[in-house]
Computed example of a mutant assay.
Amino acid sequence: MIEIATTKDLNTLFDIENRVFANDSFALSKNSLRYHLSNNIIYKIEQDEKIAGYILWLKRKNYYRLYSLAIHPDFRGLGLASRLLEYSLENLDKEKFSLEVKVSNLDAIRLYKKFGFKVSRILKDYYEDIDGYLMVK
Rank of each mutant, 00 (worst) to 15 (best):
D24A: 01
S25N: 13
S25K: 11
A27Q: 10
A27D: 03
L28W: 12
S29N: 08
K30C: 04
S32F: 05
L33R: 08
R34W: 09
R34L: 11
H36R: 08
H36L: 04
H36V: 07
L37W: 06
L37D: 03
L37N: 01
S38R: 12
N39G: 00
I42E: 00
I42F: 04
Y43D: 07
Y43C: 07
K44E: 05
K44P: 14
K44M: 12
I45Q: 00
Q47T: 10
D48Q: 12
E49R: 10
E49V: 06
E49H: 14
K50P: 08
I51W: 05
I51L: 04
I51E: 05
A52Q: 02
A52V: 07
G53N: 08
Y54G: 06
Y54N: 07
I55L: 08
L56H: 08
K59E: 13
R60A: 06
R60T: 01
N62P: 11
N62K: 14
N62R: 15
Y63M: 06
R65S: 14
L66M: 14
Y67V: 02
I71C: 03
H72F: 00
H72W: 04
P73H: 02
D74F: 09
D74R: 10
D74P: 11
F75L: 03
F75G: 01
F75R: 05
R76Q: 04
R76F: 02
R76V: 00
R76H: 02
G77Q: 03
G77E: 06
G77W: 01
L78W: 02
L78K: 15
L78E: 03
G79T: 01
G79N: 09
L80V: 00
A81E: 03
S82V: 04
S82L: 03
S82F: 02
S82Y: 08
R83T: 15
L84Q: 10
L84D: 02
L85V: 08
E86N: 14
E86S: 09
E86C: 07
Y87A: 05
S88V: 11
S88T: 10
L89I: 09
E90T: 10
N91C: 10
N91A: 12
L92G: 09
L92Q: 13
L92N: 09
L92S: 06
L92W: 13
D93L: 08
D93M: 07
E95Q: 15
K96C: 06
K96Q: 10
K96D: 07
K96E: 14
L99D: 11
L99P: 15
E100Q: 15
E100M: 11
V101N: 13
K102S: 12
K102M: 10
L106Y: 03
D107N: 12
D107E: 11
A108H: 11
I109N: 08
I109H: 10
R110I: 13
L111G: 05
K114W: 02
F115D: 01
